[in-house]
Write a protein that binds this DNA or RNA. Structure first.
Length: 318
DNA sequence: TGCCAGGCGGGGT
DNA sequence: ACCCCGCATGGC
């Protein structure tokens, strides 16, 4: 059942000396299959798996493959750099963050956290799992789905999992998705899988955000929120913030704006960084349900706590 | 129990 | 343009 990949290369990944925090980046919204507190595991396409650890000031990546055929190391290193965001300059974002009434208090503790890019396909599935559900329920759904449909492998005695590809999912997986407790979202995931299998170019980090956006909005069950979250999580595209009911209420309270001007105000404050700010807000407030999040805002308890189930500690629990 | 939740689409006005 | 409801599931 579990196959072992062969190591093909070990490389150093240069990271910025300042404003990059590997542990935070690896921790956020991750599962124990892919992060254990020290080692980050990145399943890549073509049966390649990469592990990354931080050794003093260096990042060391090990590249493994299940196939004997040659892989292009430079190409893989470029992808690693993109996924972990080492070339992303967030200085402007941090400047806004430090003065922000919601994110200001966590500006120093969350400094250096970058999105770990995931594929457009998986990013959209993550978005679908967040629809009309709590943080915990949504990530439980994704965990179940990966458990039931992913490919389990072992690497250096660590159990990990490779997410299902779009082509692995078709109509006859509907019952398994229901078993993963996706409910009515199961249908949407099937439709998504159809789109990404038919138009493979969409599941690529070089796709233009506007193209992916348009295609996703055409899928029944995918709307503005899910699409925008997918753009944040896959393409590092933050200009169109995914504002859900949760964030909307926080914005109304924190910025003292009318509900009709929420997005306008957010873009006015964050410029092209709104999508990242939205994600950081869920992390800063531990993705607490709305009423608790509003309470914390009122009391000024705006730093993430590390001792409960939250975006930063998900990997310890799942 | 019966509501409601980090959406969404369909059907009404 | 809006408003309103149902929808799978889980939590309270």
């Amino acid at each position: 059942m579990s196959t072992r990949p062969l190591i093909i290369e070990e490389v150093q990944i240069k990271k910025p000396r300042k404003n990059y925090d590997f542990t935070l980046t690896a921790s956020a919204y991750n599962f124990s299959w892919w992060f254990n507190g020290k080692r980050l595991i990145l399943p890549m396409e073509d049966d390649v798996i990469v592990t990354v650890i931080e050794d003093r000031e260096e990042l060391i990546a090990k590249i493994y493959s299940f196939k004997r055929k040659e892989v292009n190391i430079d190409d893989i290193v470029d992808k690693i750099r993109y996924i972990i965001g080492v070339d992303e300059d967030l200085k402007e974002f941090y400047n806004i963050m430090s003065r922000d009434p919601i994110l200001g208090p966590s500006a120093s503790v969350l400094r250096g956290l970058h999105v770990r890019a995931t594929t457009p396909w998986l990013a959209t599935v993550i978005g679908v799992c967040q629809q009309n559900a709590s943080f915990k329920q949504g990530w439980r759904m994704l965990y179940n789905m990966l458990s039931l449909l992913g490919k389990r492998v072992r690497i250096e005695n660590i159990k990990t999992i490779i997410p299902p590809k779009p082509s692995d999912i078709n109509e006859d997986k509907l019952n398994i998705l229901k078993e993963a407790r996706l409910g009515y979202r199961a249908r949407t995931v099937i439709e998504l899988a159809k789109l990404f299998s038919k138009e493979e170019y969409l599941n690529d980090w070089s796709i233009k955000p506007s193209v992916l956006e348009e295609k996703l909005l055409n899928v029944k069950g995918i709307g503005n929120y899910t699409t925008r979250l997918a753009l944040v999580l896959s393409l590092r595209y933050y200009e169109k913030p995914p504002i859900d009911r949760w964030l909307k209420r926080l914005i109304i309270e924190a910025y003292n704006v009318d509900e009709n001007n929420v997005e306008e105000e957010y873009i006015k404050r964050w410029g092209k960084w709104g999508g990242l700010a939205a994600l950081f807000t869920t992390i800063a407030l531990d993705a607490e349900p709305l009423q608790k999040a509003l309470e914390r805002l009122k009391k000024g308890l705006l730093k993430p706590s590390l001792d409960k189930l939250s975006p930063l500690t998900l990997w310890r629990h799942f």
